[in-house]
Design a protein around this nucleic acid. Structure first.
Lengths: 225, 225
DNA sequence: TGTACATCAGTGAACGCGCGTTCACTGATGTAC
DNA sequence: TGTACATCAGTGAACGCGCGTTCACTGATGTAC
């Protein structure tokens, strides 16, 4: 009722209704609000249609103009997160020629993403019957499944170039590597007060042993351990 | 209203009210009902005071005679689960003299427990601000922390006897091993439709490589791979 | 250029759901006298 | 041995909460004529 200038950054005081064709804009705002709710609370449960609507400054039923139901809002959030994670993983390996170094870089990027976005990570990888199969690793062309095969390929490359001297099936190894990454981050997320050892060095050492990785031809002589 | 003989297995028809001193019995029943709810649904969220009361056949407020609030019911369930897990782990290693074999046996027992009780496992190891620190790994004398130090000791023994040839800090190694176990089971729980490789052989191979385990003096010649 | 109208973004009230929790109570069981 | 009473296990009704969802609506914006 009282004119508040603290709600919207740009517009004057009251929320300006979106012009004709731009219902899209509110959709984006809802999506972002939902992400922020989870990010800020660190709790996947914090994602709800009503809370997102409230945060954007509209009444809850208005959200139904943009999402058929609450489930689809969640799906949209998770889909965006998978895209972000894939991006972070590929950016991390950019310019790295040694396949072992690239593999390690992607693994660290995965963990960094998880620890930086614990709530969203739990949303992506937690159990959730609401999320459709094609999104979360269940079906063949899901973004998560693509990342998994990417990891397996990356391991195969290491094997082919002699960087990884282990000879097991790369798909089986990929499952183990992914399990290790997931276990490390999800335990750290779930038990924040436990005296965890440094993740970076622990992960590097574990992957090196698991895959029998050879250090790259040292440019300067910088080695682990 | 109609006399149903299908509710209680032993007593005649209607629930017999517990005699004077035996309020304890209902407490046990509530605890078991809560466990069953989670076990049967596989969903930690299924644990609620009301649902447990309903399952036992009493009105919801009656549960307050036995638990101060819903949180304490959950705590009691988780406490019992930790005891079960510890028991399963120690039973699995009974009679095994080779420290490497004992370590592997306990690891497999951990995973078997998790996959057999996915709902309860998530309750124990999922993020849950409701659970008190002294129960879930945060404080020094929690049952989970005890299990962790047990694992570290087990690794140290392997090192001392030459069964594990890796020289890193056993506490750090324990964190890695636990992460691997947790990752393997929690991903399998969360993504049941993913084509996971066999857990037993994968885990054995991964632990063998991680700790550089030497096979025990073969009684018959049975080796992995 | 002006007016009448269709479109559509957003609203307010209301419902049912399961949850946790409170309150004053009922009534069988055991005990004191 | 009998009766009056205290104890205490369990009840029913009620509340507030946040959730998802429906419904008929309002009213500004753009367009057709």
């Amino acid at each position: 009722l009282a004119s508040g200038s603290d709600l919207t950054a740009v517009s004057d005081a009251v929320r300006r209704r979106n012009p004709r064709g731009q219902g899209q804009r509110l959709r984006e705002e809802l999506l972002q609000a939902a992400r922020d709710l989870v990010t800020e609370s660190g709790d996947p449960q914090a994602l709800s249609l009503g809370a997102a609507a409230k945060r954007v400054g509209i009444a809850a039923p208005s959200a139904y103009r943009h999402f058929p139901d609450a489930r689809h809002l969640k799906i949209a959030v998770v889909r965006a997160c998978f895209a972000d994670l894939a991006h972070a993983r590929s950016v991390a390996a950019e310019g790295l020629t040694d396949p072992g170094a690239a593999l390690l870089a992607r693994a660290h990027a995965y963990c960094r993403f998880a620890l930086a976005n614990p709530g969203l990570y739990q949303l992506m990888f937690g159990p959730d019957p609401q999320l459709p199969h094609e999104l979360v690793y269940e079906s063949g062309d899901s973004p998560g499944r693509a990342a998994f095969h990417d990891l397996a390929e990356s391991i195969r490359t290491c094997q082919d170039t002699g960087v990884a001297r282990i000879t097991s099936d790369p798909l089986v190894l990929a499952a183990t590597v992914w399990s290790l990454e997931h276990g490390m981050v999800s335990l750290r997320i779930n038990r924040p007060h436990f005296p965890w050892p440094d993740l970076d060095s622990t992960l590097t050492e574990a992957l090196t042993r698991l895959l029998d990785l050879q250090p790259p031809p040292p440019p300067h002589g910088q080695l682990h351990r």
